[in-house]
Simulated scan of single mutants.
Amino acid sequence: MSSQLFQQPPVLGFAAFSGTGKTTLLTRLLPQLCERGLRIGMIKHSHHDFDIDIPGKDSYRLRKAGASQMLVASSRRWALITETPGREEASLAEMIGRLDRSTLDLILVEGFRHERFPKIELHRAATGRPLLHPDDDSIIAVASDVALATALPQLDLDDVAAIADFVDRFRLQTLQSGITP
């Protein structure tokens, strides 16, 4: 992976087992980062088949009729839907490359936990799931609802302001030092 791809702007992931609260945390974190004036790009991995198009709408009908790429545009937003049957799952690098990085200050990633790039592990004791960081040296911190025996920086999973501070420090340090995954 190109280190520049992960530095300009910096890329930081949130990794955890399903049910830990990644999306919930990110929906609380994003407004705090935006209040700081940051322009955030977001990439979310899904293990499930998904559809962002609405059945019955023209774009859905055209895509289902055979369009392998369907771009829908309005004065407020645009979306590109690309069919990828029979293809391997897209890599994080490929997805980052699809973003207009020149308009972003930071890219946050939910999921892609098996790829090597800087990540914060989320851990909730009630899930009973094991920690990821002992087997993933690209995890740079752990946000948990309990104290853990780890040398990594620990964040309180419920202290969104402290997590926002950590994320912003990571962004600034990455830009200043050229950290690579």
Rank of each mutant, 00 (worst) to 15 (best):
K119Y: 05
D100Q: 10
G111V: 04
R113L: 07
L106P: 06
E115K: 09
A125I: 06
S102K: 15
D100M: 00
R113Y: 10
G97N: 05
A125L: 02
R124H: 10
D105V: 09
H114S: 14
G97Q: 02
E115L: 08
I107S: 06
F117Y: 15
V109L: 06
E110N: 13
R116I: 10
E115D: 07
G111H: 05
L108C: 08
E121I: 02
A126P: 08
L99E: 00
F117L: 07
G97I: 10
H123G: 01
L108W: 04
R129W: 00
K119A: 03
F112M: 08
M95G: 06
P130N: 04
E110F: 10
T103R: 15
L131E: 01
R129V: 01
F117M: 10
D100W: 01
F112Y: 09
G128C: 02
I107C: 09
T127G: 03
L99H: 04
L131D: 00
D105N: 13
R98A: 14
R101P: 14
T103K: 15
V109G: 10
T127I: 02
T127Y: 00
L131K: 00
F117G: 11
H114Y: 13
A126C: 06
L106I: 12
V109M: 09
H114A: 14
E121K: 09
A126D: 15
R116L: 07
A126T: 14
L106R: 05
R98P: 08
I120M: 09
R113D: 07
R101Y: 13
L99I: 05
V109Y: 05
R129A: 00
H114T: 04
V109A: 04
G128N: 03
L99C: 02
R98C: 14
H123F: 12
F117S: 05
L131Y: 00
R101V: 11
R129K: 03
T127P: 04
R116Y: 07
R116V: 11
R129E: 02
H114K: 12
D100N: 14
R101L: 13
I120Y: 09
P118S: 08
L122G: 12
E110T: 14
R101F: 14
L106G: 11
D100T: 01
T127S: 07
G111M: 03
H114R: 15
